[in-house]
Amino acid sequence: MMAADTYAPDINGAARFAERFAVGLVSRGHEVHMIAPSPTGEPGRERLNGVLVHRMRSHRYPTVADFHICLPWEVTGRIKQIVHKFRPDVAHVQAHFVCGRYLAKHASDAGVPLVATNHFMPENLVGHLPLPKAAKDWVKHMAWQDLAKVYGLANYVTAPTPRATTLLEAAAGIYGAEPISCGIDGAPYEAARAASRTNKKPTILFVGRLDEEKRVDELIKAVAKLPDPEAVKLEIVGDGSCASKWRSLSDELGLSSVTTFHGFVDEEELVDLYGRADIFVMPGIAELQSLATLEAMCASTPVICANAMALPHLCQSGNNGFLFEPGKIDQLSAHILTLVSDSDLRARFGEHSRNIAEDHAIGKTLDRFEEIYATVIEG
C-alpha cells in the first residue's frame, strides 16, 4: 500500500514516478494500492492501470494550477479504515504531507512495515509563498523538521540520488537512507528518437513546471544572446505560476517567432517532443533527480544542466553535455551555441546520454525495492 500526495493524472516528476513504479509492481504480480488526492475533489476508488487507487477528498491548491491538496481531518479516518480493511504486507510513502503522513501513522500503529521515499525539497513549494526571505528560510527549516518526524517512523528510507540522501542527513538529520533511482523505461523515448525527422533548425527543449525554481527565464535569456536566435527553435513544455511572465519575457526579447509554449501535453505528444529535440536544457536548481532530464537522455539527447543539487549525477560535463553555474547566462548561452554549431558533437553526447540512462532502468529500481520490502517484512 502506497501513498502519494501527487499522482496521475497530475503531471510532475513525483507523480510520474509514483505511477510508473506502482504499475511496474503490478506487472510483477503484486497487488498495489495507492492512496492519493482526488483530481476532482470528490473521494472515491478506481482501478487505474492495475493499481487500486483510493482517492481522498481534496481541494485545489490556490497558487499552483491543477494541483490538489488534502486536509488532515478529512482523510485521516478514511486512511485508517483502508489500512485496517486491506492489511497490507508493507506500506510505502512517497511524501510526508497528508496522504503519506497518515499512511505512515496508521500503518505504523497497526504494525505494518514502513518504507519511505523522499522526493521533497522545500524550495519547490516555498517559492509560491508571498513571504520575505527570512520567513521562507524559517518555513523551510520547519518543513524539514516535519519530514523528519514522519519519516522517523519508517523501517527503511530511500531517496532518488546520493545528493538527495546527503540532503536528508544535513537538513532533516535522517541518516542511512539509500539512494535508489526513480527508474525509467527508456524504450518509448528511444523509439521516438529513431522515428523522428531531422529538424530544419536545431531544437532546444525544456520540460517541467514553469515555477520560479526551474529558472526557465535563464534559458530564454541565453537563447536571446545567441549570435542568431532565429537559427534555433525553443520548445517549452509545462505550466505553472511563472508561465505568463516568461511568455512576456520571450516576446520582449524578440523570441516569439522561435519559441513555442506548449503548456501541458499528453504522454504521446511529450514522447514525440523528446524524440524531436536536439538539445535538452534543465536550468532548475531544486532537482533531487530530474526525470525530465532522464527522459531526454533516454532519447539520446545531449543535455545542458545547472550545476545544482542532483543534476551532476545525470549530466557529466564534457561527456553527455555541459554543466553551467546557475545565473551565468553567458555561460549557458555559450554551451548552447557549442552544441547548436556541431551536429557531430550532439550525436556523440547523445549516445553517451543513452548509455548513462541505462543505469536507471526501471527494472533495477523494482528489483531493489522488492528486496527492501522482503527485508522489512521479515524484520
Rank of each mutant, 00 (worst) to 15 (best):
A3Y: 03
D5Q: 13
Y7D: 04
D10Y: 07
D10I: 10
G13W: 08
F17T: 10
A22F: 10
V23I: 08
L25R: 00
G29L: 00
H33S: 02
T40M: 10
T40P: 05
E46Q: 09
V53H: 08
R55A: 01
R57S: 14
Y61H: 10
A65L: 12
E74C: 09
T76S: 05
I79H: 11
K80Q: 15
Q81C: 11
Q81H: 15
H84D: 14
Q94G: 02
R101K: 15
A107W: 02
A107F: 04
G111Q: 05
N118C: 10
H119C: 00
H119G: 04
P122V: 13
P122C: 04
E123N: 14
N124W: 06
G127T: 05
H128F: 13
H128R: 06
A134W: 06
A134E: 15
A135L: 10
A135E: 11
K136N: 08
D137I: 06
M142F: 09
M142R: 11
D146W: 15
V150R: 08
T158M: 01
A159Q: 00
P160V: 06
T165V: 15
T165I: 09
L168K: 04
I174F: 08
Y175F: 15
S181E: 03
D185N: 14
D185S: 13
Y189D: 07
E190A: 15
A191S: 06
A195G: 12
I204W: 02
V207K: 02
V207N: 00
D211F: 06
D217F: 05
L219C: 01
A222V: 01
V223I: 02
K225G: 04
S241R: 14
S248P: 07
E252M: 04
S256A: 12
T259Y: 03
T259G: 14
T259D: 02
T260H: 11
F261E: 13
G263E: 06
G263K: 14
V265Q: 07
E268M: 05
L270I: 07
D272A: 12
D272H: 14
A277V: 00
A277R: 10
I279H: 06
V281A: 08
M282I: 12
M282S: 09
P283R: 05
I285F: 01
Q289M: 13
S290V: 11
T293N: 02
L294D: 08
L294A: 11
A306W: 04
L311N: 04
P312R: 07
L314E: 08
Q316P: 02
Q316G: 01
S317T: 14
N319Y: 12
E325C: 02
G327D: 10
D330V: 14
Q331P: 09
S333Y: 07
I336E: 03
L337Q: 12
D342W: 01
S343F: 03
D344R: 14
F349V: 13
F349E: 09
R354W: 08
I356C: 11
A357T: 02
H360M: 03
R368K: 13
F369V: 06
T375E: 14
V376P: 15
V376F: 07
V376K: 13
